[in-house]
Design a protein around this nucleic acid. Structure first.
Length: 514
RNA sequence: GCCGUCGUAGCUCAACCGGUUAGAGCGGAGCACUCAUAAUGCUCAGGUUGGCGGUUCGAGUCCGCCCGUCGGCACCA
């Protein structure tokens, strides 16, 4: 029986344009999904778009189109760009799809039956121009005036459906205690636990001031709040209103990882698990909340206009290649608790140091020596690998452990270390010198065979990060994607005599000193 | 304001429960080598581990205070 794995990105709000943040999150998930697939896992990798809410309704009106048309256009853009980054998602869910809307209504009805919902009145500071409520702190910040038109905020009230979040306080606390790694990184876990200690308030889950959303079952005029609607995507994509074994997707839940940005942690770590508890469904296994990119030392913001947007990203890919882009995202990105800086100079240095000088050069020197010394054929290793099989096995084990813990950059480093060891080994054993002595031919054959086999295994470990060139390299060596993990991850997949040509995987790129 | 991060070599970061001369990568300097994409390997960083005080046989690692940074505080990846 094959293992299953499930990973999700947040669904992206269609009022936004795709930028480095979306692509970063999605790429993280993609690398993990690819790593699991390499290991023969049956992977469900979900992404999609969040399309309801007052902001979409307003933007649509400004553009003189229907909300659905506006959502269609923008959702299409999010979906269109996935192949540009070789994202290997297995589904793309949109919250305006019938499958989602139908199931959300059913889940809401179940929540109602469970007694987790009640109708109460909501009072708050209301911006009449923007037609939205502001939080108490936000209202204070704006001195109780609209940030947009300067008119005073009004005290407004409306009837809403509430989710009884407070009732789940103890169960949530118990879950956090028994699952100390539920939220990663640990700094984020601390934040959630700390806030949980302060007590929970029930959350409004419907609105009446707009209509672009999923109607509240049995209460016309009430629309399900976008966030509640959106969270359900993780299980509506699995048709999880039917959790029985007859549903071919049901076994993917609970998801191994919800990968999110830190700003939406509370919803995923607290509200979402509580709703699932109310529905008597299992919570997600783990949540990884990454941090943000900043740009050349400055926070990205709409007002500064320094977002790393799609055209900027496409320029990098045109210049350095997709692998380089993914490599920088995955190894230098804000995957943990601190923000990371996107600098053009750092991008260039990372590409040169890692992909050109290490991956590219090491594979090049090894294949070149074999091509020259052994007529382009994998030589026979009478030493049976020497110390290398164990060394490679260790790298594979470390890599697996790091991926299991969502430590992607560390997993990449496992492969890089292996390559650096190969470089070192070549300098120490000097096969290029020994090759001049016919008496040393067997020794040279063993050294080079060991090098190539180690490089091959390193490239396997890099394939989730660098899908383009590593797949190409594997194919060149005749050990490509349809070969099983057991064969590929073990020593000895390259047989003596198989053809080897000199490779040049990552060309040097001149830095543009302006 | 409340809660929470982080503050270690020029840069990016390591260091499990406190325990020998605090470690890598990148950049820089020198040397070696020539199979390779002017690549690679070796050597070189005398860092008061933000500051002050405390606990301890012993603290980067625990406690207190201070300084600085960043984040969350309900809908911006």
């Amino acid at each position: 029986m094959t293992r299953t794995a499930c990973i999700t990105t947040p669904i992206y709000y269609v009022n936004d344009r795709p930028h480095i943040g979306h692509i970063f999150t999605t790429t993280l998930c993609d690398a993990w999904a690819r790593a699991m697939r390499l290991q023969n896992c049956d992977v469900f990798f979900l992404t999609g778009t969040d399309e309801h809410g007052v902001k979409v309704e307003k933007s649509a009106a400004e553009h003189n189109v229907t909300p659905q048309a506006w959502a269609d256009t923008n959702a299409a853009e999010f979906e269109r760009i996935l192949p540009l980054f070789q994202i290997s998602n297995t589904d793309f869910i949109r919250t305006t799809q019938p499958r989602h809307e139908r199931q959300v209504q059913e889940f809401i009805q179940r929540l109602q039956k469970s007694g987790a919902l009640y109708k109460g009145s909501f009072e708050g500071w209301y911006d009449e121009g923007q037609e939205e409520y502001l939080t108490e702190t936000r209202a204070k910040e704006c001195e109780y005036k609209s940030a947009v038109n300067g008119k005073p905020l009004v005290r407004a009230q409306e009837q809403n459906w509430y989710f009884k979040l407070s009732a789940f306080s103890d169960r949530l606390k118990a879950h956090f205690e028994s699952h100390p790694h539920f939220v990663q990184p640990s700094a984020r876990m601390n934040e959630v636990v700390g806030r949980l200690r302060e007590g929970l308030q029930d959350v409004p889950m419907t609105r009446t001031n707009f209509t672009w959303g999923i109607p509240m079952p049995g209460d016309p005029g009430h629309v399900i709040y976008v966030w509640i609607d959106a969270l359900f995507n993780y299980i509506t994509a699995l048709d999880y209103t039917d959790a029985s074994p007859k549903n071919p997707r049901a076994h993917y839940w609970p998801a191994d990882w919800h990968v999110i940005g830190k700003e939406i942690l509370w919803f995923h770590a607290v509200i979402w698990p509580a709703m699932l508890m109310a529905l008597e469904l299992p919570p997600p296994t783990k949540i990884h909340a990454h941090s943000f990119w900043i740009s050349e030392g400055k926070k990205m913001s709409k007002s500064l206009g320094n977002f790393i947007d799609l055209p900027t990203i496409e320029k990098y890919i045109a210049r350095y290649g997709l692998d380089a882009w993914r490599w920088f995202m995955l190894t230098r990105g804000p995957i943990d608790a601190t923000d990371a800086d996107f600098r053009a100079s750092a991008f260039h240095e990372t590409y040169t140091a890692d992909l050109v000088n290490t991956v590219g050069n090491c594979s090049s020197r090894v294949t070149a020596m074999i091509a020259k010394t052994f007529n382009g054929q994998m030589p026979d290793d009478i030493e049976r690998g020497g110390a290398w099989p164990a060394r490679c096995q260790q790298a594979v084990a470390d890599w697996q452990k790091h991926f299991a813990n969502f430590q992607l950059a560390d997993a990449a480093e496992d492969a890089m270390k292996l390559l650096r060891d190969v470089d070192l080994f070549i300098n120490q054993t000097e096969p290029f010198k020994l090759a001049k002595d016919p008496a040393q031919r067997e020794r040279v054959a063993s050294i080079l065979a060991q090098c190539l086999e180690s490089v091959r295994i390193a490239s396997l470990l890099l394939e989730a990060f660098l899908p383009q060139k590593m797949a190409e390299f594997a194919a060149l060596l005749g050990v490509s994607g349809d070969t099983s993990w057991d064969v590929r991850s073990r020593w000895g997949a390259l047989k003596p005599g198989c053809p080897v040509t000199k490779v040049a995987l990552y060309p040097r790129v001149e830095s543009d000193k302006s």
